[in-house]
Amino acid sequence: MVKRPVSLIYLCLIFVFLYAPIAVLIVFSFNATRSTYSWGGFSLEWYRALFQDRQIMRALYYTVLVASLSAVISAVAGTAAAVGIHRMKARIRRIFLALNNVPVLNPDIVTGISLMALFTALHLRLGFGSLLLSHITFSIPYVVLCILPKLRQLPAEVTEAAMDLGATPLYAFYRVVIPEIAPGIFTGLLIAFTLSIDDFVISFFTTGSGVNNLSIVVYSMARRGINPKINAVSTLLFAAVFILLLIINKRDAAAKQLEV
């Protein structure tokens, strides 16, 4: 229908459109001058400035702290939730699966303001605690979605086999069910970590008391215009998210190969 060279050029243009902004950002993070207009030579000046910026460093600290805590807590809670949902009766399960999907499908801004309203109603001061709770709230559904398929693949007989061999139900759960779904839990943990690092909108509404993550700092800086330090932060964040997703995909690919 479309001639070959024309279609290839078209696809190339789309990829230029998709990748040019990212490439430009990365390139200018190494620019020696403030300009995003002309190249003033290679320099790590903005990375140095970045690491001396106390506000950014504090935000980095909170970003990593919240991401680590929420990833670990979501992985544990999400595993319990997934097992719980899996054991529910079909009709109740459908209701809770739908409820589980609400934070996944709802616009982030609605999740953000509704959690903000909840914390206020609970007289919980917006700050580190509310930020962490929000991140756990939006991460658990993804962890659940990672683990449920693994539970479905796990035949009921495997638990029975363990009990048949003398395992109490709890022993069977910790020594058989958990190890068997471990790949799903780990993927969920990585996704929760990535989502947390990546989140802006929900954090924006649910934090306070001077506790900010990197996204919020970037937002407030960017509203005031272009800042070369943001370029450097962005490049670092790209790298972090990219490496994380590479790990997730590698694991998935490896798991698929094992299944085949």
């Binding site: 998709l18 990748y19 040019a20 902004p21 990212i22 430009v24 950002l25 200018f28 995003t36 207009y37 990535t194 690092i197 990546d198 802006f200 996204s215 970037v218 937002y219 960017a222 215009g225 272009i226 943001i230 370029n231 962005s234 964040l237 790209f238 998210v241 990219f242 997703l245």
Partner: peptide, 18 residues
Amino acid sequence: PMWINFLLRTYAWMVLLG
């Protein structure tokens, strides 16, 4: 590109369009 922070993707255009 969808994996990359929405905020940063948008900010990148500020650099391009300034």
